[in-house]
Nucleic acid binder design. Structure first.
Lengths: 271, 271
DNA sequence: GGCAATGACACACATAGGTTAAACAACGGC
DNA sequence: GCCGTTGTTTAACCTATGTGTGTCATTGCC
């Protein structure tokens, strides 16, 4: 994982309970993987003017909405999901601070999923086309946006493997580890534990399992001394190695390293 | 679906058993959704020089390979997949003619899945960075590449819902319909049936099912008069409406319409 | 022609995970 | 303090799907 110090620094700037550090959230997230210039940072921060506050359970947009806005989650947790006619629901992904929503909005006339706040949430909102014009004006930012998209794609592919070919026990272990690794990038407070602000039903909807079976399986993980669940929905990983082994978790797909295209030689190639 | 005539025209150019029409495959695929200029077409065709021929079962690249090439499938079927240590395999997606492989390669140091030919296959290969430089030189092509990426993302999300929340019966129905709709874009010979060059085991690996259960479920679909399976692995949809209802299939996510960003007003906005 | 390999198909049986229901704890409103 | 609401936990039962095994048809090889 890249530049731990940098994350730490950003965190410190935030500890006084303000949602926004001096850096905007996008600049912060991208900044973990790429050293931004002053100019690039202020270009990103310009996206950060219009704020949205949502209460837990509220929807940001619905499946089928025609929207031309892209969002960055600043604070809280959300999820993207689709529901079948009979009520079966599938969560595509959890949305953590720093993540983009409707990233590809400029190319999609309507959304194909719903986005809902799991906790109280704060977002910044800007036009879909801002990403396109910003990318044109600042090629390195364009690469960063493309990289964010590629990373999301990898996450989704891993989700397919998780749901398609892992059993409940492995699925939950894998999901808990993925969330830990992702949170570690933006939030330094979780060395081996974190608050999972999610009911067991929601976890089931993400993993293609029923509430009851999630409960059964969490119980098993606890009984075997692999995890611990405090009150306040705090998850603590007690035996990281064993859990990683069970889940066959390898963090490569998270791409927590510097953005490849921005090495010296590639910048030359691209001109 | 857009410009049926255009697809027909391209098909005619191909019927003499040549893999390449006058238009390169990328220009052809993109051309279905966007009228390309002569200049754009020849820029795309420049990507089309280096050909690769693979026999069925051969791998194009393996999980973990560090490659800096992007590919277009010209002819045949392939699949992208990952295998767990104990042999359980999950296919992320089938790859049809016109699809890109390692689309985001410029942003990913190593691949996270394996790509294998299901039939004999022909591909064109070019540098990952060509997409970036081409996008910079031709903004409309940049939009087209981004649109292709967004579309792939939608397909993968639908795959998550399919595997996570549909049962075997619905899963297979849904997959068969998706393939029909996708093939219809590039190949006009399949009005309501197509050759599915795939064993039942492979279908199971795509849908998170066992071979035996795929077999059972196909039998049921046949017995109920919904589909027909000729020899030569040809699938015929006998009752499209019923199947669409069962699968709760709505083709919006396939985005078989013109590329949104390229409307007059958006082009102005983007400059 | 025989033989090995592959894939479709079928059956019996085992089990992971779904369903239903109910008790219980935590919390906020009043 | 009581009460409704929400989420967790557990138990009992059921079913969709996996596993193991075997047959049969087709194909290609020698």
């Amino acid at each position: 994982m890249l530049s731990r110090q940098k994350v730490l620094k950003f965190q410190k700037a935030e500890t006084d309970q303000k949602d926004e550090s001096e850096l905007g959230p996008l600049a912060r997230t991208i900044g973990v993987f790429l050293d931004l210039t002053e100019e690039e940072i202020s270009a990103l921060d310009a996206l950060n003017r219009q704020k949205i506050h949502l209460a837990a359970q509220q929807d940001l947009y619905l499946e089928g909405d025609a929207i031309d806005r892209t969002y960055v989650l600043l604070h809280g947790w959300m999820c993207r999901h689709r529901t079948l006619e009979d009520g079966r629901r599938q969560i595509m992904s959890f949305v953590l601070p720093g993540d983009l929503l409707n990233h590809f909005g400029a190319y999609q006339p309507t959304t194909i999923h719903t986005v809902t706040a799991l906790t109280d949430a704060v977002l910044a909102s800007f036009s879909c086309h801002d990403i396109v014009s910003l990318s044109r004006a600042y090629p390195r930012l364009g690469a960063a946006f493309a990289w964010l998209g590629a990373r999301k794609y990898s996450l989704l592919e891993e989700h397919v493997v998780r749901i398609g070919r892992r059993n409940a026990y492995e699925r939950i272990a894998h999901m808990l580890l993925e969330l830990l690794h992702c949170l570690n990038v933006v939030d330094d407070s979780c060395e081996d534990g974190y608050e999972l602000p999610v009911t067991q039903e929601i976890l089931g909807d993400a993993l293609g399992l029923s509430l009851v079976h999630v409960n059964r399986t969490l119980r098993r993980l606890r009984k075997e001394g692999l995890i611990q669940m405090d009150s306040n929905r705090r998850i603590v990983i007690l035996d990281m190695d064993a859990l990683t082994e069970i889940a066959e978790f390898s963090p490569d797909y998270l791409q927590h390293r510097s953005i490849p295209i921005l090495t010296e030689e590639n910048l030359q190639k691209v001109g």
